[in-house]
Design a protein around this nucleic acid. Structure first.
Lengths: 231, 231
DNA sequence: TCAAGTCTGGAGTGTCAACTCCAGAAACGC
DNA sequence: GCGTTTCTGGAGTTGACACTCCAGACTTGA
């Protein structure tokens, strides 16, 4: 829904201009917004295909159909552009899973979500992995700010899973021993690892095994009542 | 145990010199072997800290205490050096888990292995993630040869886990429905995803949640008999 | 309509990284 | 010991990449 977060130039002294929470406002024309969005979209696609290090600002310039100065007009430097890419991809990933994500409060919903994720990988021939996970692997050790934003993106993802599991527990469908918080974290981890192995092996088997095993465990945590175990 | 695999220069026409399986043999002096090993060790450490793209051949040169020409004497180009790093790190990772890996045929062994992996991450303050996983994320889309070797490395890791689970099944300790092959793949995926999230969040909780959930599932797959479930 | 601010084009700069070349030193095989 | 091969040092080349600069075109608000 919302577009990406705003600030990137961030002067030092001339900070407090208007809003208290936002640091600096670039004040973009409608045309400017469109250009900026075009740059971010082009950069996101290239980074997804070739990584941050494999994508030059000149590649982005050509793909977005803009001039060099435009990139540096909208972004302080390459790392600022990368942060915009992180924000963009976080929204894209969450959007792609809506509205399933946030309603993962039954085995059927969880299985549908699993099928969506696996199908998506199959569509793109297991290439690219997870947009957020790949960025995390590449940037975690070399860009602290990027690492923090990626962690926040993961947290939102985890929240989506968690809320469904909590609903199940609150309805009494899960055994009291089952902890939705730990479960959601484990499921996200299995998803990320499954995506990485799937990307490396170019087949969906790892992703399927990881998610199916996690879902089987959730099924085992169901209060004795409904839902068949399945394979 | 064994040192890295040999060939990297690989001429084209003058192939068949001696051994039938190996493509080309560099014929290294003892001194040469030592120098090459020093380069690979230095490169591995730097790549682990800053990634492939973040490590220049000159960084490696300085860290290994060699001259420029030496690097290109032992490796055709940077990607050949990277492949040597992959081989080196694969051995290092598997070595670090021996002898536990390959004897993961009981819940106690699995828990000890889990503790080892978590403890290792805690020791290094959750920095760096998995040496193999990080390389996979960075190289899978841009270096097909590296991707294949990383997939092979993952396969060896998976084999280690699988053999233990198979032993449990063959002894009749697992329910007939449980598939050791899928389980081992799922456990490796959970491990990788847990490591990635742990690296991103700088805390071991994700890794612990991922592994503990997988182990709980294995415990649930035990044939009714021994072993307490635990949390 | 006009001034102030925003957007755009493209040439240019400095740095850094991968890789080459060659000549001399050390090790090896006989 | 001696010819051959391997190993080493370091200067040099080439290209790419992040980023700058400035002048002109467009938008906006009064």
């Amino acid at each position: 829904m919302a577009s990406e977060a705003g600030p990137e130039a961030g002067s030092g002294a001339t900070a407090a201009t208007g809003s208290p929470s936002a640091v600096a406002e670039p004040r973009l024309t409608r045309k400017g917004q469109a250009t900026r969005a075009r740059i971010v979209a082009a950069a996101s696609a290239l980074v997804f295909e070739r990584g941050v290090a494999g994508t030059s600002t000149d590649d982005v310039r050509a793909a977005a159909g803009v001039s060099t100065s435009q990139i540096y007009h909208y972004f302080a430097d390459k790392s600022a552009l990368v942060r915009a890419v992180i924000a963009h991809q976080t929204e894209a990933v969450l959007d792609a899973q809506r509205p399933l994500l946030g309603r993962l409060d039954s085995m059927e919903a969880l299985r549908a979500w699993r099928d969506l994720v696996v199908g998506l990988q199959r569509e793109r021939q297991c290439e690219g992995g997870c947009p957020i996970g790949s960025l995390a692997g590449e940037l975690a050790e070399i860009d602290p700010e990027a690492r923090a934003e990626l962690a926040a993106g993961f947290a939102r993802w985890e929240d989506g899973i968690r809320s469904g599991l909590r609903a199940m527990r609150d309805r009494g469908e899960l055994r009291p021993g089952a902890d939705p918080d730990r479960l959601s974290l484990a499921i996200l981890a299995a998803l990320q690892g499954g995506l990485l192995l799937t990307q490396t092996r170019r087949e969906t088997a790892p992703l399927e095994a990881a998610l199916d095993t996690m879902l089987a465990h959730v099924a085992d945590c169901l209060e004795d009542g409904a839902a068949a175990p399945a394979g």
